[in-house]
Write a protein that binds this DNA or RNA. Sequence first.
DNA 1: AATCCACAGGAAGTGCTGGGCG
DNA 2: CGCCCAGCACTTCCTGTGGATT
Length: 400
Amino acid sequence: MDELEKLFERYLQSNIFRNREILLPDYVPDKLPHRDEQIKRLATILAPALSKSKPNNVFIYGFTGTGKTAVTKYVLKRLGSKGEDRVLFAYVNCRQSNTNYRVLAELSRAVGRRVPFTGLSTSEVMSRFVEGLDKLDKVMIIVLDEIDHLVKKSGDDVLYFLTRINQQLKRSRLSLVGITNDLRFMEFLDARVRSSLGEEELVFPPYNSRELEDILRRRAEKAFNKDVLEPSVIAKVASIAARQNGDCRLALDLLLKAAEIAERRGDVKVTEEHVSLAQKEIERNLVVDITKSLPLHVKLVLASIYMLEKERARNLTTGMIYNRYVELSRVIGIDPVTQRRVSEILNELDMMGIINARVVSLGRYGRTKIISLSVPKNSIKEGLEEDLLLLGLADMVALG
DNA sequence: AATCCACAGGAAGTGCTGGGCG
DNA sequence: CGCCCAGCACTTCCTGTGGATT
């Protein structure tokens, strides 16, 4: 038996997993524990669709991993099975479709109008959508998940259009379900859009440690073989996730990764130690992946921050970082972007959670951003390494 | 109390890509 | 074919500002 064969063999007779898929992020269980209240309220709000009247628009808030998407999909599925002939759904993830055009194009496709992914004017797509929808003679419910991403990027034009569309419809009706984890999101909206979208509001509270434990236990029962989890594992995973705003997705991922680590090592039981390792790996992978996929100038800005921090410079300001960035650009012979742009890049990095940037006033010494890395230096280094080598900057940056 | 630094961050515009439409 | 469109990354020009120092 060669090496590969041994490896495959080990997977075949995994003594840890019974059904690994149950822990994957897009697995939808047939029961959603501890969300009964939210399910009931959403169902009550949307039920009028069954009698062909327009349900109120709904706004759903809650941190990541509190079950917003799962509950919404669940309710829609159940609703659909009762009234397929009258109700039509569309689910749009605005993180992926984060421009006006893309959202409208997806919606048009949902009502059976073919639309190219670029080329048409937005208003053209709008009218195709209206026409397609009205012809269907149905109540349509549109779910805009992570709606804050759309608005931050492209404004609320589409929302304005969608909230007023009913006036143009003769036979069909349209309702919106907006989902976000940004609690201050509503402030960005036009007052008319705000009042229309906020007809109903639904808040998803974070899961507490006990609830997370319960959920994990139910999943673990199906996902793992008997007695492979040490008794304290679930409690530990739950308490870590509870601290992260009760993020259930994180909890499941943590459990999955911990079990995978145990399996890879050939251990027979998943222990708390595996969980700790998994926690570090998740964090590291996330940062490394994000860093690797950054555009060149963003990488150079990040490399500048990395260098300065390594040199133990304190209280990094936009100006300091910009100077360093310009130097690096000169060394590799490319035109640097303007400070205005770098200021924006710093905001972007802050939003991604890689750095911490807060605006402060230093009185006489001006107003600026104070910046620090908010992830381990080594993760940044690992993410940048490949490019720095290619650019011949490796020595310079690494030595600092 | 007035000043003034070192930027923040809004608005508008440019040049480019990748794709319509007639 | 020529012209139009949206999106993106970026520039140019700009006005605004908290608070240590004068």
